[in-house]
Write a protein that binds this DNA or RNA. Structure first.
Lengths: 116, 116
DNA sequence: GTAATCAGTATCACAGAGTATACCAACTAC
DNA sequence: GTAGTTGGTATACTCTGTGATACTGATTAC
């Protein structure tokens, strides 16, 4: 009985984990979310804040994330046209994951440096 | 000055985040780590605990993770041969990330269900 | 004798994630 | 006039992560 619930919970948890991986999978989504949550609003600003990303990848991911209500895109049609990206409350629910991953990355770096 | 340090920290943090994504990227590493940390030791047992994974993928990932010291593989050469996988302390450092992702997945499911 | 389990390996094939590079039109700065 | 910024799009390409399927040899079970 205790084992049965343990097994069921495990099954549920793997699925939850896999769902999350599905949503934020890939190389760029989390860095983009992180950048926007840190207050970067403009396209080139976000682009510059993420090492290695290309305009094409950023453009694609932003479009997808807008469709999925992760971010809000606003166009100010003055001249020159101004575009702003903002995070939605939904986007902010990734905060804990991002923080945990930043932490791990920092610890990992220390660990690597101590090894040498 | 305050802004300069803010920017520098942001740059460091994106890199930490990207490092982490590099290490645990892909569809399978975190579910495998999770499964082994949950006490699954045998190949088929781990395989069954992760919906959708193929023997090929599991085999490849386990090999890579063994090389990277994330897991320990022990062979007991009695007949029939017995193989056991165990998590290393290093492997357990992903705990917080995995927990945060399981949480998110569960919340996300609730959210989706409430929508309909 | 047939099926199942164990721990995998071998092949083949493909979609799509990601890269590289150039380009656009409008505007600013020197 | 030349270079740089803005917010992207277009095209072409690579590559590798992933999937599908079959198979192995040893052992156990019916």
């Amino acid at each position: 009985m205790a084992e049965a619930t343990l097994i069921r919970n495990q099954a549920e948890e793997v699925k939850a984990l896999q769902d999350t991986i599905y949503v934020i999978g890939g190389k760029w989504k989390l860095p983009i979310i992180n950048s926007i949550c840190n207050g970067n609003k403009r396209f080139r600003q976000i682009e510059r804040s993420i090492p290695g990303i290309t305009t094409r990848m950023l453009s694609r991911e932003l479009k997808e994330m807008e469709m999925n209500k992760l971010i809000k895109r606003t166009v100010y049609p003055d001249s020159p046209v101004l575009v702003e990206y903002e995070s939605t409350p939904y986007c902010k629910t990734f905060g804990n994951i991002i923080l945990a991953m930043i932490d791990w990355g920092k610890e990992h770096k220390k660990y690597i440096q101590e090894e040498n």
